[in-house]
């Protein structure tokens, strides 16, 4: 009984974090929520008795993807102020 409840909660949390990651106004926030989604996915894999995938998901889905995307966001933020510079360089 408790396990079914846990599964239902986990499924609900997955859907909510997924929706929140896509709907969030702030891109930084969206990616942080997406990292949370990756961690929840790792828990899901444990529930599905797939510890191998859980390990990979925790390292990749939550860790590497998050760092990669956050790095890109900070790049865009930094680039924003120099948009005109980029334009000038091209011209």
């Amino acid at each position: 009984m408790v396990e079914i409840l846990l599964d239902l909660l986990l499924a609900l949390a997955l859907i909510l974090t997924a929706a929140a990651a896509l709907l969030s106004q702030d891109l930084f926030r969206a990616i942080v929520v997406f990292i949370a989604f990756g961690l929840l996915m790792a828990v899901c894999w444990v529930r599905l008795q797939a510890p191998d995938i859980a390990l990979a998901e925790a390292a990749i889905g939550a860790g590497l993807t998050g760092v990669l995307l956050l790095d890109a966001v900070s790049h865009f933020r930094r680039g924003r102020g120099t948009d005109s510079v980029v334009e000038e360089e091209r011209g």
Binding site: L55, I60, G63, L64, V67, D71
Partner: peptide, 28 residues
């Protein structure tokens, strides 16, 4: 992780991801 892959959860992919994570940390 690489060594554990023979008889329990682990293996090349997880270990590779771990290596990459180490590298990313070093780079950042």
């Amino acid at each position: 992780l690489l060594w554990a892959g023979a008889d329990r959860p682990g293996g090349a992919f997880q270990a590779g991801a771990m290596l990459a994570a180490t590298g990313v940390l070093m780079r950042l």
